[in-house]
Computed example of a mutant assay.
Amino acid sequence: MSGFKYDSYCCNGNNHTGDCQRIPTRNVRITSGGYEIILKPGDHRLVTRTHDFQLPQSEARRSTDSEYHICLYPTEDTLRCFYAPDMGF
């Protein structure tokens, strides 16, 4: 994750203990309305049960490293920020 920085609004903590981290591409599905993000325990350090987040494309922040990242705050139930690479359309 060299050089990738989270917006200060999004992330509490650091890359090892904070609420933001990169998530596997397999967890993200592009839909007609934006994104469906499914997280299971092990996909993010804060997740203890399965979550299915829906997010409009307009609310995604741009990822500068071509990876998906998610910030969960104040609990694992709240998607605070989601970073995605350009959709390409």
Rank of each mutant, 00 (worst) to 15 (best):
H16I: 03
H16L: 13
H16Q: 15
T17S: 15
T17L: 14
G18I: 06
C20I: 08
C20K: 10
Q21V: 00
Q21Y: 02
Q21W: 06
R22L: 09
R22P: 05
R22V: 11
R22I: 08
I23Y: 03
I23K: 02
I23C: 05
I23W: 01
P24S: 12
P24F: 04
P24T: 00
P24Y: 05
P24R: 10
T25I: 03
T25R: 14
T25D: 15
R26A: 15
R26H: 12
R26C: 06
N27F: 00
N27S: 15
V28K: 12
V28N: 13
V28Y: 06
R29E: 15
R29T: 15
R29P: 11
I30N: 10
I30A: 07
I30G: 08
I30P: 10
T31R: 05
S32H: 08
G33T: 13
G33V: 03
G34Q: 07
G34T: 07
Y35K: 09
Y35G: 09
Y35M: 12
Y35C: 06
E36D: 13
E36I: 00
I37A: 13
I37K: 10
I37R: 14
I38R: 15
L39E: 05
P41E: 07
P41N: 07
D43F: 01
D43K: 04
D43G: 11
H44A: 04
R45K: 15
R45H: 09
L46G: 06
L46Q: 13
V47N: 05
V47C: 07
V47W: 01
V47L: 02
T48D: 14
R49C: 03
R49A: 06
R49K: 12
T50N: 13
H51L: 07
H51A: 03
H51F: 07
H51M: 07
H51C: 04
D52V: 01
D52F: 00
F53G: 05
F53M: 04
F53I: 01
Q54R: 13
L55A: 10
L55F: 01
L55N: 04
L55T: 02
P56F: 01
P56D: 10
Q57T: 11
Q57S: 13
S58Y: 03
E59K: 13
E59M: 09
E59W: 01
R61K: 15
R62D: 07
S63C: 00
S63T: 01
T64Q: 10
T64R: 07
T64E: 13
S66C: 07
S66K: 13
E67Q: 13
E67Y: 05
Y68L: 02
H69K: 09
H69I: 04
H69D: 05
I70G: 05
I70Y: 06
I70Q: 08
C71W: 04
C71Y: 09
C71L: 10
C71G: 14
C71T: 13
